[in-house]
Design a protein around this nucleic acid. Structure first.
Lengths: 262, 262
DNA sequence: AAACAGCAGTGATGGAGATCACACACCTCT
DNA sequence: AGAGGTGTGTGATCTCCATCACTGCTGTTT
């Protein structure tokens, strides 16, 4: 299996990341490189990381790890699906774009998730654009190899189905959030609650790390940047929640829940 | 395999349909009853209908056909997933509801589609409510039987994954439509175009059968009944499209596309 | 027939939020 | 230091659409 370093790609510069440097020992972008799933220290039991030892070994055979800088486009809406990408480290945003440039972020992919699974399985073009939010390591598996792998490994196929069902659920959540709420504050409150779910609590307050701009938050809830700024200002004034640098601080969770429900 | 006739359930009357009458020869609700997938005249090559002969035979063993009247609730949001339902005949709307009663229709399920697949595979409660739009025949398969079936039949598992990926795609379409359009006319135009895709064309116009109220259309695009009425009135005045009884008549497809794009 | 329910058409009104237009704070370059 | 870029804070408008409040129009029930 090869570990590749993908060249820096600023927005929209090029779609197919190309191999630039072979690197097994160095650590560009400050990331530890992981070559083998079986030996991976970062393995969590989410999704594909939790396969049988045998399947994991076979998976190692067909995957190729690549490193991406922040802001790299992994694949783009409308592009034919060459294969799937497993997020080993880092985070990436899945988004879709309008003709007049308005974009909507559907989800922030975390380590362990697969990107491009639906397109590869359905055989259609990508419906989403994926852009890294941090320097990230992704493992690429070509469409043919992956489909062959699924056919040969029943457990992996079920895992894939489970992963897809999760994707469906999160998509339905988005639809409910975007389509069924009256105000922007409501959607924003729901989003902050969702994030604070995996944060650390301390003396009644919850802290969560997240590095997103107001613009990106707006794209997550289908609103405008200014409105998000105003709503966050309101939350801060009322001592409900606050964004300090890149950490979210929830001061009053129940009040936030009240705002999310109404 | 048993064919059951489910009692009439008006909205919200009861959640778990109960067996009322055994009927193999009669045809309640004016539906022809189909007992065996292998002998089914209505079989199309979508999704689960297109399985290998062997899988289809085994599927016949574990499924139970039921008849539902119009407006029957097949399952409800929040309910534990007992199993999946394959739509043999009829149509059903998949919807999600707000706390204050506002509902959003995500999709109209057609024959050949499976309902409740994600919930059964992920093991979580149903995220959607399903209500029949017409007298319908659904084939029920319990969760345990279905999961056992998937594990034993690789082709079926891949089919399930494909079905899920389709669901994802349609969910993403909904998100894009709801979240990224500026006006209601735009969303409505897109919806009408989508419907007219499987309609019959004749002297420049396209006719499609669909029996939905303005209210339901509003719930499909996340708008209000009055606004839909007004937008449709505008389309009619401009000779773009028209709703006559239960048929959609698209007079000027290019104009409609223009409205959908802008 | 009368009474009723469900649906469609229409006007008036209010408000939430998109949009435009700034000012300001903070980076990183040269 | 200055210049440029990126992200944030705020005010002023303006428009679209949800909502309310009717009037009809069907078909069904009694």
């Amino acid at each position: 299996m090869a570990t590749q370093l993908v060249s820096t790609s600023t927005n929209f510069s090029h779609f197919q990341p190309l191999t630039v440097v072979e690197s097994k020992t160095n650590s560009p972008y400050g990331l530890p490189i992981v070559d083998s799933c079986a030996a991976c220290k970062l393995r969590n039991n989410s999704f594909f990381c939790a396969l049988s030892a045998e399947s994991l070994r076979d998976l190692d055979e067909i995957k190729h790890a690549s490193l991406y800088p922040e802001g790299a486009l992994v694949f783009v809406e409308g592009q034919a699906a060459r294969g799937v990408y497993i997020v080993c480290q880092g985070r990436a945003k899945l988004m879709t774009t309008n003709r007049d440039g308005k974009t909507l972020i559907l989800k922030i992919a975390q380590p362990g998730e697969i990107l491009g699974l639906h397109s590869v399985i359905s055989g259609k073009a990508h419906e989403l654009t994926v852009e890294t939010l941090q320097p990230s390591q992704l493992a690429f598996i070509s469409r043919e190899d992956f489909l062959k792998f699924l056919k040969g490994h029943g457990d992996a196929c079920l895992h894939a189905a489970q992963h897809l069902s999760r994707d469906c659920q999160s998509a339905y959540d988005s639809i409910r959030s975007i389509g069924l709420s009256h105000s922007v504050s409501e959607k924003l409150a729901r989003l902050l609650l969702h994030w604070s779910a995996d944060g650390r609590a301390a003396d009644g307050m919850i802290r969560t790390k997240l590095a997103l701009t107001h613009e990106e938050i707006a794209q997550l809830i289908g609103s405008s940047r200014e409105t998000v700024t105003r709503a966050l200002g309101e939350f801060k004034k009322r001592h409900v929640a606050e964004l300090i640098g890149s950490t979210l601080l929830v001061r009053n969770k129940t009040a936030l829940e009240g705002l999310a429900a109404c």
